[in-house]
């Protein structure tokens, strides 16, 4: 063990919801974690470090969206050596991160609770450019009518076959989406349970290809819209940070938390297709 005092203990845990938008959707999970480590340093947030020869900051991630997929609902937890106002952490961390990695919500985490347990399902939005909505609608219907749809994915351990159908709680064509004048485009919304092995939107798309020969001419634009506990009656996902907000009744109303999602979220949550290139 190295000389010197033991690292300062964790005094406060914060749960952070952040978005991965525009061109920053091409960040991998490793890229995000490096960016966050640097941002907490720049922002002066007192993150705790592990003991040992190569101390690591206590920042943990749950169920990160794949590289190339945008998200409005990514989650991480920070262990701090001191107590900080979550609203302040939200603003400071957001300012220190590059535009496109945007902090939406920060709440204190009560001891003994697990965020991962609450992230039961994800809601995804998939834009398929060059695909006729009617064709997509029929493909979705065929997929949902099937009991099992075996798909293949290349994993690090080689090819793997698994069922992509059972995990899909809901999948439908988004009919509210405005039709572009020049090119057809279909938008799907799907609610997919978190299972093992994980079923991702591209697995569902592989399933659509299999049951209905749906082959989009260009890569799909995928955005995770939400993660949380799934209400099977309504098909809605609850905000997984709500129990934390309720557990810590903040003095003077809402000041103890920093629910900024409503303001931060761009109209239509089309983050995958909005290219946030600065002028």
């Amino acid at each position: 063990m190295p000389d010197g005092p033991a690292p300062a203990p964790v005094i406060q845990r914060l749960r952070v919801r952040y978005a991965k938008r525009g061109r920053l959707r091409f960040t991998s999970q490793r890229d995000v974690s490096r960016a966050v480590e640097r941002a907490v340093r720049r922002a002066g947030i007192p993150v705790a470090f592990s003991a040992g020869f190569t101390p690591h900051p206590k920042i943990s991630y749950t169920g990160a969206a794949p590289t190339g997929v945008a998200s409005e609902a990514e989650y991480l937890e920070l262990g701090l050596t001191d107590t900080r106002d979550p609203a302040r952490v939200r603003a400071d961390l957001d300012a220190a991160l590059p535009p496109g990695l945007d902090v939406l919500d920060v709440v204190p985490a009560p001891a003994g609770t697990s965020l991962a347990d609450r992230l039961q399902a994800s809601e995804w939005r998939v834009r398929l450019d060059g695909v006729d909505p009617g064709v997509a609608d029929r493909a979705v219907a065929a997929f949902m009518a099937a009991e099992r749809v075996e798909v293949e994915r290349l994993t690090k351990k080689g090819r793997r076959r698994f069922d992509a159908r059972a995990a899909v709680f809901a999948c439908e064509l988004d009919r509210r989406a405005p039709e572009a004048a020049d090119a057809p485009s279909a938008i799907l919304r799907m609610v997919v349970r978190h299972v093992t092995p994980a079923v991702r939107p591209d697995d569902v798309l592989a399933g659509l290809r299999q049951v209905a020969d749906l082959a989009p001419p260009s890569p799909p634009l995928v955005t995770r819209l939400a993660q949380g506990p799934l209400d099977e009656a309504t098909g809605e996902l609850a905000d997984p940070l709500d129990p934390d907000r309720e557990a810590v009744p903040p003095p003077g109303g809402d000041a103890g938390t920093a629910h900024g999602a409503a303001q931060e979220r761009p109209a239509g949550t089309e983050s995958a297709d909005v290219v946030t290139t600065r002028p």
Binding site: F26, S28, D31, T67, G68, P98, G100, V275, T277
Partner: peptide, 29 residues
Amino acid sequence: ESLFARLEPLLARVNKPIQYVGGELNSQI
């Protein structure tokens, strides 16, 4: 014009697309 709109569909098909995206802290446009 920015070439990004034409580049973007290619990014999904290459290794480590982040290297072509820019957006580094302290970069400027």
